[in-house]
Design a protein around this nucleic acid. Structure first.
Length: 242
DNA sequence: AAGCCAGTCAACCGCAGGGGT
DNA sequence: GACCCCTGCGGTTGACTGGCT
């Protein structure tokens, strides 16, 4: 049998929204907000749409306080980083980016970032041997919870993240690439860290990428002091598909 | 010019979970 | 506690577009 549909499919319009429908929904939301339920909104707004469709259209497209496309490198880094810790918690990830929707972040990941990362990891793995972290393992993929997880960062911050929110490891932790025994990896690397830049994130440049380190953080992030891990973020444009 | 293909993104679908009764 | 309703979420689909042959 299956679940009953949320509305009468024969009676509602589906597919792309027309400018007139957008105007009707925008006008209604600006006049009244969504004080009632999404289910009843289409009738009130004079729309022949499912309530869920109205909600999605408003939240992902019509809302005035959102941006579309044009993801910055900084946003990409934040998405990579949060994905490596949280997996596909798109709403959570989007909540950490200013004026981005979960749908936008998800599409951006699926169409660009995932491929870029996979290509970079594939290219990189032919050049180097372990140990290193070629791909951020989604949190959901962990058979057992890592002692490093959960990361406290994403759940508490109200405003958007910046590079500075990815905190430097405690002193004395080794660059994972240094363990390869190649002196060139460390000697030839450059490091952007709290010590050198005043910033509190750490990214060690190795062979065309950055190993971004994470630390545990208290609710205000300022109290972070426990190293949690990190992942490799390749920046070499020659490794990118796009 | 036409057809094909891959990339992009808006929109849909179904499930999970919260809140109310 | 059980049930129902509604919202939010993540996965997936399909229309559209631009580039290539």
């Amino acid at each position: 049998m299956g679940r009953a549909p949320c509305c009468d499919r024969a009676a509602v319009k589906r597919g792309p929204w027309s400018p007139e429908e957008d105007d009707a929904l925008r006008d209604y939301m600006q006049r009244h907000g969504n004080t009632g339920s999404w289910i009843t909104l289409p009738n009130k707004a004079g729309l022949k749409r499912c309530g869920k469709s109205c909600r999605l259209r408003w939240l992902n497209y019509l809302r005035p306080d959102i941006r579309h496309g044009g993801f910055t490198d900084e946003e990409d880094t934040i998405i990579y980083s949060l994905y490596s810790q949280l997996g596909s918690k798109w709403s959570l990830i989007a909540s950490q980016l200013e004026r981005r929707t979960d749908n936008d972040v998800k599409n951006h990941w699926n169409t660009k970032l995932k491929k870029r990362l996979a290509a970079a990891a594939a290219a990189f793995s032919t050049r180097r041997s372990p140990p290193f972290m070629p791909l951020p393992a989604p949190a959901a993929a962990h058979a057992q919870p890592s002692p490093l997880l959960p990361l406290s960062v994403p759940t508490v911050k109200a405003e958007a993240y910046t590079y500075d929110d990815f905190l430097a490891p405690t002193a004395g932790l080794q660059d994972p690439f240094a363990a390869e025994g190649s002196s060139s990896a460390s000697a030839g690397s450059t490091s952007a860290s709290a010590a050198s830049s005043g910033s509190n994130w750490s990214a060690v440049d190795n062979a065309g990428g950055f190993f971004v380190d994470f630390c545990a953080a208290g609710p205000d992030l300022a109290a972070a002091d426990q190293f949690l891990g990190g992942f490799y973020y390749p920046l070499d444009p020659t490794l990118s598909l796009v």
